[in-house]
């Protein structure tokens, strides 16, 4: 597992695969980076033909209410810009913790991993 040293922000890479944006979150994510990412994705959707966003969080150790809110906001913003967002690869321990925390992210589409997320996007519907 890749754990960058805290205090050294790492840029979150946003990949374009056809009309789908793939974002892979890894390790420690600072609040500022998460907000930056939110802006990046929004501007990418509005400036290019993007119909779907896949956020891969399989490399994320924890999702707290702040990151949860950012993820939910990315999805809502993308929806307004006619793109669908799929959250992929949440680990079991993270899912259990989020539910206990009271954060069930009802508006988000979820998938087991990136492959499944791509499948969901290609099928259309919900």
């Amino acid at each position: 597992m890749n754990h960058p040293v805290p205090g050294q922000p790492v840029q979150v890479p946003v990949l374009a695969l056809g009309d789908v944006l793939l974002v892979s979150l890894q390790g420690e994510l600072h609040d500022g980076m998460a907000e930056q990412l939110q802006q990046d994705i929004t501007s990418r959707i509005s400036t290019s033909r993007v119909t779907g966003v896949v956020i891969d969080i399989s490399g994320v150790d924890i999702v707290d209410s702040f990151l949860g809110r950012v993820l939910a906001e990315i999805a809502s913003t993308a929806r307004l810009l006619a793109a669908r967002t799929v959250l992929a690869g949440m680990r079991p321990a993270v899912a259990i913790t989020l539910v206990e925390l009271g954060l069930t992210l009802p508006g988000l589409i979820t998938a087991l991993d990136v492959d499944r997320a791509m499948e969901v996007l290609s099928q259309g519907g919900s």
């Binding site: 959250l87 992929a88 949440m90 079991p92 993270v94 899912a95 259990i96 989020l98 539910v99 069930t104 992210l105 979820t110 998938a111 087991l112 991993d113 499944r116 997320a117």
Partner: peptide, 9 residues
């Protein structure tokens, strides 16, 4: 149920 859904099931 909620946790399983977060994982895509």
């Amino acid at each position: 149920v909620a946790a399983a859904r977060l994982m895509g099931a």
